[in-house]
């Protein structure tokens, strides 16, 4: 009966487990472990940490540094890199959050999603855990870009760092929720990446991350004002610029703020728009996730 492959059973004691009824506590545990899984995977995947920083650094130093020669007249003495820095802070978070959302497509392809789907917990707990995990990971990535503020003449101040971190968390949360709502419908990684490129890149360019959102052609102004990302980029820029020591005219040109028919939106309201959108997308994602078998 015995063969070589058969290991003799190791001695062990039988430990019996009684699984308790579902409760709020069990849902919180589920959220926490799904969140922690995202972090563990992120930390284990050093390649991802590096690759997701390539694009922001490319934009900041290559594009920013290169275009500086052309733009110096228009920026009124402000380094172009300093100008686009708030946009880069948003960009880092965006792409990392997207990748986090994409992991649900991986999970499906590799079967792990099923392990979570059959667990005796609410689907919403899984989605919330994923969303928080994605936001945390993205914000961590954002900290790395925050750390290089000095290289682009942005001062290190507690208010700026905390504020930027808060905005990054908020944006990462909203983008992860959006990514999840899309990812749940998509079965293949390639199509997900395609869809995200098609939606996220235009959204990023239109948001005004790379240019001031004023004096644009009408069509672009309209698109800019309906682009949700603009409401994350603008408060970030205002926050960064409030810590810069620059001429009033440069401030006026480079940091015009978002306005609707001449009415200047307060930064807090803009942040609230992102929050509400994020929550709305989270609800959509939960709803979609609960429907699938």
């Amino acid at each position: 009966m015995t063969t070589v492959a058969q290991k003799p059973a190791e001695p062990y004691e039988v430990v019996r487990v009684q699984v308790p009824k579902r409760s709020l506590n069990s849902e919180l545990r589920a959220i926490k472990i799904v969140w922690r899984r995202e972090l563990i995977r992120f930390v284990n995947d050093r390649m991802r940490i590096v690759t997701s920083l390539v694009q922001p650094f490319l934009f900041l130093f290559v594009l920013g540094g290169g275009l500086q020669q052309l733009a110096s007249a228009g920026t009124h003495g402000v380094d172009l890199k300093t100008f686009i820095y708030p946009g880069i802070l948003c960009m880092t978070v965006m792409f990392t959050a997207m990748f986090s959302a994409a992991s649900i497509v991986w999970d499906r392809e590799f079967g792990f999603l099923r392990e979570m789907m059959v667990a005796p917990v609410r689907r919403s707990s899984i989605v919330i855990g994923k969303c928080l995990g994605g936001a945390t990971v993205a914000a961590f990535q954002g900290v790395i870009v925050l750390a290089i503020a000095g290289l682009v003449h942005v001062p290190y101040s507690v208010g700026l760092i905390l504020g930027a971190l808060g905005l990054q968390l908020l944006l990462a949360f909203a983008i992860t929720a959006f990514g999840l709502a899309v990812a749940i419908r998509i079965k293949q990684m390639q199509s997900f990446m395609g869809v995200m490129q098609m939606i996220v890149m235009p959204m990023y360019f239109i948001s005004g991350a790379m240019f001031p959102a004023q004096g644009l052609p009408t069509w672009l102004t309209v698109l800019n004002r309906v682009d949700p990302l603009a409401y994350a980029v603008d408060p970030m820029r205002r926050l960064v610029f409030s810590h810069l020591n620059i001429s009033p005219i440069a401030r006026h040109v480079l940091d015009p703020g978002l306005s609707w028919w001449g009415w200047q939106m307060p930064a807090l309201l803009e942040a609230a728009v992102v929050l509400v959108l994020g929550l709305g997308l989270l609800v959509v994602a939960i709803w979609e996730f609960s429907r699938t078998e």
Binding site: V17, Q18, V19, P20, R22, N25, S26, R29, A30, K32, I33, R37, I40, R41, N44, D45, D107, F110, G111, F112, R114, E115, M116, A119, P120, V121
Partner: peptide, 27 residues
């Protein structure tokens, strides 16, 4: 135990079991 694998390859064996225990509310 499904026909197709449903483990998370990026995690260790212990982490996979821990995750399961948390999802199922093992004390």
């Amino acid at each position: 135990v499904f026909q197709d694998p449903t483990l998370d390859g990026y995690l260790t064996a212990a982490q996979n079991l821990k995750l399961h225990a948390e999802l199922y509310g093992v004390p």
